[in-house]
Nucleic acid binder design. Structure first.
Lengths: 183, 183
DNA sequence: TACTATATGGACCGACGGTCAAGTTGTCGA
DNA sequence: TCGACAACTTGACCGTCGGTCCATATAGTA
């Protein structure tokens, strides 16, 4: 078990990191700064999260939690029950919206990550999308198409569309691509 | 004009960087190492290329040159003259092959780059693909679909498929997606 | 040959991610 | 209630990185 003070510090560190990311460029949010903002020694941050990638992953995971449960056990069309095509569009709508609200966190994670394709979240999402594509349109190389579609969540692209306020356009194009591909 | 000794050093630096990237992990190829391998002072490297991103961009550009001219003025189907769909598949075939042979260089550039979507090469390729999609299938959001398709060249994905020797599979899936989308 | 714009090299800089040994504190069984 | 021990905290410290700077050297020119 994690001691009470340890848990308190974990929360303080996550909150500090979020706030710093919200108000500064990703490259300006160093581990030292996070520690200082959390009112904690640098060593504590590394003790809790291992390294920069671990901290950023924890941040992403906390932002993504509710979507994950909605997918696996929530009501349709996001959750199980709806036809694959409907679940797919619902998923991409939700995920674009989520990414829009958390570009900075996403970017920080991508940048710190040595292999984002192996992160638990990416793996889970990829499996989800692959399964839906495969069952809706068996002729496609589902896994590969899933990689391509998930590529739209790259922080690079998100940042670009967010800057010009065109994130709806991204969602719309994704919808139309999904329906075209599955037809 | 660039002085003769300067030109010689430029070539030596580019060659050293290529060799180091071929034989080491991207993260192990520091600017110091490149300078040492080129038999040149560190200051010279920065004087020639500005910063790490500049060096890596120069490297990418040198590897990409022949494809660029083949696209703008070579014979069909890569060059002008063929129908858009054919040019598109030819382009992606060529670009996947190119990326396959240069993953390390690509990865190093991506990692060093602050905004890869603004790099001259990406901009040119994106414009090319956008134009072809728009003329083949006006109903699509051409620019956005182009971003998505070009996402397949991300070093992350390339590395993964290269490791398992499945780079043909990537090319094949890309071909089939292009034809499905343009239908 | 003499002059100058250009190029060179490596000591130096601040910042970064990460480590660690020494001190502190929550927790829990007696 | 009170030790005792494991878990936790801390910040000085480390090696490395990208990048700067300027005294020195040299290619090109007239």
């Amino acid at each position: 078990m994690e001691r009470a003070d340890a848990a308190r510090n974990r929360r303080a560190i996550l909150r500090a990191a979020e706030e710093l990311l919200a108000s500064h460029e990703v490259s300006e949010v160093s581990m030292d700064r996070v520690a200082a903002a959390a009112g904690v020694g640098k060593g504590t941050v590394f003790h809790r999260f291992g390294n920069r990638e671990g901290l950023m992953r924890a941040l992403v995971e906390s932002r993504v939690e509710s979507l994950s449960t909605a997918i696996s056990s929530g009501p349709p069309p996001l959750g199980p029950g709806a036809p694959p095509a409907a679940r797919l569009t619902a998923f991409f709508d939700a995920v674009v919206e989520l990414a829009t609200r958390n570009v900075k966190v996403l970017a920080a994670f991508e940048q710190a990550s040595t292999d984002r394709l192996s992160s638990p979240i990416y793996v889970a999402w990829h499996a989800h999308v692959t399964g839906l594509i495969a069952s809706a349109s068996p002729a496609l190389d589902a896994s590969l198409v899933a990689h391509l579609l998930l590529g739209s969540l790259h922080s690079d692209l998100m940042v670009r569309f967010l800057r010009t306020g065109e994130t709806d356009r991204l969602a719309a194009a994704l919808r139309s691509m999904v329906s075209t591909l599955l037809r």
